[in-house]
């Protein structure tokens, strides 16, 4: 038996890492299409981007199914409880090695700030990227004898929205990568997402902050 508790089930881990790889790849190819970096060559970037986007949509479909069947979606319900404490932790406590105000638990994987950010990601950003991306791929050019609800003139707003979302996505990615290191230890979050298991310290005695200091990393 592994030590610790199972926080992330196998599908969740698979979903997370697939999503991570796809988003990285989509960002790379997408920003090449956008004209920001040369890598695959424009034509290849377009093809790879479209292919990866289709994979991403399939993954999203499975993830949505999983979230609802397992009721995991409730994990993302924003709450105001502890919100201020969590913010203060990132602003002050973390430097003084104060304990996390929110205890991680398989039934409470996210702290209030994470809930907010991930809910935003799931409700706004990913739908925005998926919708604008789909429109980008399948919108109609003006064709005679065709439905012309989406004309080629729509290309600009679609592309601009998609780009805007992509910038947010990259910013999220940077912050997300950094925040991995803010778990119980420097690597405990990463380990948990790889193995699924995370060790949780004993419920700290209020009068024993020294224990936390030993365990706590940065």
């Amino acid at each position: 038996m592994r030590k610790g508790e199972l926080v992330y089930r196998s599908f969740e881990r698979f979903w997370h890492w697939m999503q991570a790889a796809l988003i990285l790849f989509l960002a790379l190819t997408g920003f090449e299409i956008h004209g920001s970096l040369p890598f695959f060559g424009f034509g290849n970037a377009v093809r790879y981007h479209a292919a990866a986007a289709l994979c991403f949509l399939v993954l999203v479909a499975f993830a949505v199914f999983w979230h609802f069947t397992t009721e995991e979606w409730r994990q993302y319900l924003p709450t105001r409880k502890n919100l201020r404490a969590q913010a203060e932790y990132y602003l002050h406590g973390i430097f003084r090695n104060a304990p996390h105000p929110t205890r991680k638990h398989p039934l409470r994987k996210l702290n209030p700030l994470q809930k907010l950010v991930y809910a935003g990601l799931k409700v706004f950003l990913i739908p925005l990227m998926a919708a604008s991306g789909l429109l980008y791929m399948v919108y109609r050019y003006p064709e005679r004898h065709e439905v012309r609800s989406l004309t080629i003139g729509m290309l600009e707003p679609i592309a601009v929205l998609h780009t805007l979302g992509a910038f947010f996505m990259v910013a999220f990615l940077i912050a997300h990568l950094y925040l991995i290191t803010t778990g119980q230890t420097l690597t405990s979050n990463l380990k948990a997402m790889v193995t699924g298991y995370e060790e949780f310290p004993e419920e700290p005695e209020p009068e024993a902050p020294a224990t936390a200091a030993v365990q706590g990393g940065l």
């Binding site: 004209g35 600009e156 592309a159 947010f168």
Partner: peptide
């Protein structure tokens, strides 16, 4: 709007 050539200047700056 030509993808790869064009961009929205505000979105670019903001992003």
């Amino acid at each position: 709007y030509l993808p790869g050539r064009d961009y929205h200047p505000w979105v670019e700056t903001f992003g």
